[in-house]
């Protein structure tokens, strides 16, 4: 039981982080039918923003978290304006290739600005004792940090669902996902709403990335690749285009990874391979994902 709980919390945490990043993929796909390959790199930039605001500008943790999240949101908005907006009417493949280009650009930009030598995210904490603190739940010792990550993740999802389902801008996002030209004929400025979607997704990715870095403190320009890829798998698993699908897919993927590694330690080395096995299985069995709608193309 203790062992189970320990892994359960780890699974929720890892899954929550995947989910936070996956939502950005799913929202952009839902609206533009574009896989934004630069998403993981926006996350990486967010982590650097947090690192520098805390270590170099010595802001307090909450403030540097806020700065990083807002910075990533601005970056996401900017990427859409500069790279994707001019291609709105171009064939979809052009935007896809551009996304890969933006990804390389951000990685190399980070090498130039921040340097290729990995930094330790633990430098952010002046008082390292917080990392050691644990809470005991039914004999299982859970790091305080894990709880913190879970709470922040769920708080962010509540905000996200409120924005998407209860506000005007969220309604515009859903309308655009259904039909862009019709929405613009309803008087909605489509480009602004798309820009906002990118900003929202990037902000969540940055938040996820910062918490990822607390757990895996190795900060380097290519750190966005693996979580980005896993989150993408999570988004496809849950049904790309659906926000609740991304959340569900992320949490399930995290759980599966942790539990497989915990109960079958001999296959631990293949942990990353499980994600891809899941991806391939989903694509074969239910290509639309767990919560995705079956797309019927008009002939």
């Amino acid at each position: 039981m203790t062992f189970f709980l320990q892994n359960f919390f780890n699974g929720i945490m890892l899954g929550g982080l995947y989910a936070l990043i996956a939502v950005g993929y799913s929202m952009v796909y839902g609206i533009l039918r574009l896989i934004n390959f630069a998403h993981g790199d926006v996350m990486m930039m967010g982590v650097y923003f947090a690192y520098y605001s805390a270590v170099v500008f010595s802001l307090n943790p909450i403030l540097s978290f806020t700065v990083a999240v807002l910075g990533a949101a601005a970056l996401g908005f900017l990427i859409d304006r500069v790279a994707y907006k001019p291609l709105r009417k171009a064939p979809r493949i052009s935007a896809l290739i551009t996304a890969i280009g933006v990804s390389f650009f951000l990685e190399n930009l980070a090498v130039v600005i921040f340097g290729a030598i990995p930094k330790s995210f633990l430098d952010v904490f002046k008082d390292k004792s917080i990392l050691e603190k644990t809470i005991t739940v039914a004999d299982a010792r859970i790091p305080l940090l894990t709880f913190l990550v879970i709470i922040v993740t769920f708080a962010m999802f509540s905000v996200l669902f409120f924005v998407v389902y209860k506000t005007k801008i969220g309604m515009a996002m859903r309308a655009i996902a259904a039909d862009i030209p019709t929405t613009s004929l309803m008087g909605v400025n489509v480009d602004n709403v798309i820009g906002f979607t990118f900003a929202l997704g990037s902000a969540l990715a940055a938040a996820g990335g910062i918490m990822w870095a607390m757990r895996f403190p190795n900060v380097h320009p290519y750190m966005g690749f693996v979580p980005g890829l896993k989150a993408f798998i999570a988004a496809v698993f849950g049904g790309i285009g659906s926000i609740s699908g991304a959340v569900l897919g992320g949490i399930l993927l995290g759980m599966i990874e942790i539990f497989l590694a915990a109960y079958f330690p001999s296959v631990m080395g293949y942990r990353d391979a499980f994600a891809f096995i899941i991806l391939i299985t989903v694509l074969l069995v239910k290509p639309s994902g767990l919560l995705g709608k079956k797309a019927i193309e008009k002939v």
């Binding site: 005007k168 309604m171 515009a172 859903r174 309308a175 929405t183 309803m186 008087g187 909605v188 400025n189």
Partner: peptide, 9 residues
């Protein structure tokens, strides 16, 4: 919601 979207602007 359909009508609300149209009132957006």
């Amino acid at each position: 919601e359909n009508v609300l979207v149209a009132q957006h602007h």
